[in-house]
Design a protein around this nucleic acid. Structure first.
Lengths: 137, 137
DNA sequence: GATTAACTTGACGTGTACGTCAAGCGTACG
DNA sequence: CGTACGCTTGACGTACACGTCAAGTTAATC
């Protein structure tokens, strides 16, 4: 059977393109995040699947769980451009952003703490090294 | 036996003070993060345990695993007398710092990304709202 | 002294996001 | 024609940080 360049992709092409494992794609399908077509027993991922996967991977970067991501995808998908849905998406994203900013503030705090600890440690190390060779020029 | 105010705390006092469950404290003990004394079969958490728990909880907020936290605790605990040990401590702390800075960079990236997404979404929402009432005012 | 509250130790359960076999099928290649 | 590769579906395993019983013991209270 010749490779009909019908704008669908095999699981392997998907993996290579998006740097995920086959297991991941099957897992996302089981979670109803993707809906690849079947050619016999084999999956064919459509343009829509690829668009969704992009959003999934980006959502993961933002710290959404897969369930949250599915919710967002469903909102986007359900009759596309309804104002109420867009606003809901916006609201959820806003919450996530606040969350992330909070985490970053804490992380900054911790980084500064650890930095000062390191400074302190470095000082002690220098001190001990001096004691080890009290007359080092 | 009267309550000798011997600067130790029961598991319940610990839970109330630090807002954790007994299970958590026992879990931390099993993980060798805490070393409460025993009074008969009951735990008595010392000042040292409380100091360690504070650090544990802070570490958790920053996204460290318990294993990493134990490593850090061992660092803080290392008595600071031996140069080699201190330098080892310093080295590990440096690694952690690099780790955290890397995570912060990623988080920053994701935050900026999400912010621009939000902006885009807000624009679309405004657009739809305009279409919904083309003759507003 | 008896009840009950609080503590104890197992040991299995939970949720997330997959990893890792096992066993089978279909087909492209030599 | 056979075999090796890639895909398929289960189904169990993993890591983290505990939750949730169960069953027993101790301590405090009436």
């Amino acid at each position: 059977m010749p490779d009909a360049p019908d704008d669908t992709m095999t699981i392997r092409e998907m993996c290579d393109t998006f740097d995920v494992t086959p297991r991941t794609l099957r897992f996302y399908e089981a979670k109803e995040l993707l809906f690849p077509l079947r050619e016999g027993p084999h999956r064919r991922f459509t343009k829509r699947d690829r668009a969704r996967l992009k959003l999934i991977l980006r959502g993961k970067r933002f710290g959404f769980t897969l369930d949250q991501i599915r919710e967002l995808l469903d909102l986007y998908n359900a009759d596309g451009q309804h104002l109420v849905q867009l606003m809901r998406v916006h609201e959820l994203a806003q919450e996530r952003l606040t969350d992330m900013e909070h985490r970053r503030a804490e992380l900054d705090d911790a980084i500064n703490d650890l930095r000062s600890q390191l400074k302190w440690g470095a000082a002690r190390i220098a001190e001990l090294q001096n004691n080890a060779r009290p007359n080092a020029r």
